[in-house]
Design a binder for these strands. Structure first.
Lengths: 195, 195
DNA sequence: GGTTGATCTGAACGCCTGTTCAGATATTGA
DNA sequence: TCAATATCTGAACAGGCGTTCAGATCAACC
């Protein structure tokens, strides 16, 4: 056997990425073999190397795309509003974005240590960019007097950690809807930085 | 060769646990081999099985001990004070405890998926006990009128996520001391649940 | 319709995995 | 001093790992 019926790179490529994403999220990068990924897509392991130079590149590609999406969507938020309104936008966006792709969020955090040093630096840089966007909102609010935050760097990390945690417990069939969750978190964030 | 000079279970046992802890935290449970652990302690892999029935039991033992320590220390906090004072105690304790053993904290969260189902249930139950302690504080404060929290369950998880995040960025040689970090987080938590 | 190139198989490479165990040696207690 | 026991080695087991590649087959285009 060799090339199989219906084989098409435009279809196989995304399917490999989806399978890898699911398996990495469930078992962890190190615990998932190329043969497992191939099997999930109905291929032999060798065929994967038409789509990625190696396993590491597959992980990095997933994480990089995720971070690019995150920063891309973030840049589309209104940036001329008052700090309080921008903070609310940020909070609601962060929750919605993360609840929309819990597996990628999980991987982008858990598998950082499985990146090569240079790949790690890239992802870490993008993460820093994201944090900076929030810190800018907090700083603007402090300067304006609408926020009271003793340490904007710490507050930035505290808020992001609090919000990202939503992915560990939220279930679509649970008692709370996404808008309700957004309201509840926004209420806490708003008070935590209030003057 | 066989039994080596100076060999003693009372010394080797803890050294194995320390090496496993360090390696699991750095590379992840799945990425660390029994031979690596043995090598870090100066043993052959087979010798590890005098101390643990298998690799899984070694991971579980580390996590179980960690959770027992956490709940043990928690139970020694004053429990008769007003909710506001109990919440402050909880916040300061949580930060100090977690900053004192960042590797264990990391493992206890990251390696949950590498536990067998029954081991997972045990750790998850202990984690739930810990969360319940905080939720009780928040509920008491709401009942008393000193806190205003729309959803105590969500607020519990939000506060814990925010506080635990400190382990991802805090460095002993950084610009902030532990008491300063405690003050800053407590300030945010206090306001976030305030009436 | 025939040819070219894209896609995949299947086997192979060298190496690593968790775990077991017989046997060897050091320590301990009598 | 000697026997008993605790501790560890070193080899072995069956299987899995990431990756490469020659060759087979299908899809697409002229």
């Amino acid at each position: 056997m060799a090339r199989t019926q219906g084989s098409h790179a435009g279809i196989t490529g995304p399917r490999i990425r989806e399978a890898a994403l699911r398996l990495f999220a469930e078992h962890g990068f190190a615990a998932v073999s190329m043969r497992q990924i191939a099997s999930a897509v109905g291929l032999q392991a060798g065929a994967l190397y038409n789509y990625t130079p190696d396993k590491q590149a597959l992980l990095f590609s997933l994480m990089k795309e995720h971070m690019d999406d995150l920063l891309g969507d973030l840049s589309r938020l209104p940036s001329q509003d008052a700090p309080q309104a921008r903070l609310e936008s940020f909070v609601r966006f962060h929750i919605a974005f993360h609840l929309d792709r819990p597996e990628l969020v999980f991987i982008a955090y858990m598998e950082l240590r499985n990146l090569t040093p240079e790949n790690f630096r890239v992802i870490e840089g993008l993460r820093r960019d994201y944090e900076d966007a929030l810190e800018r909102i907090l700083s603007d609010g402090v300067a304006e007097g609408s926020f009271e935050v003793a340490d904007t760097k710490l507050a930035t990390l505290a808020v992001i950690a609090m919000l990202t945690g939503v992915t560990t417990w939220y279930r679509p069939d649970g008692r709370l809807s996404v808008p309700e969750v957004q309201d509840l978190y926004w209420d806490m964030v708003r008070k935590s930085v209030s003057a």
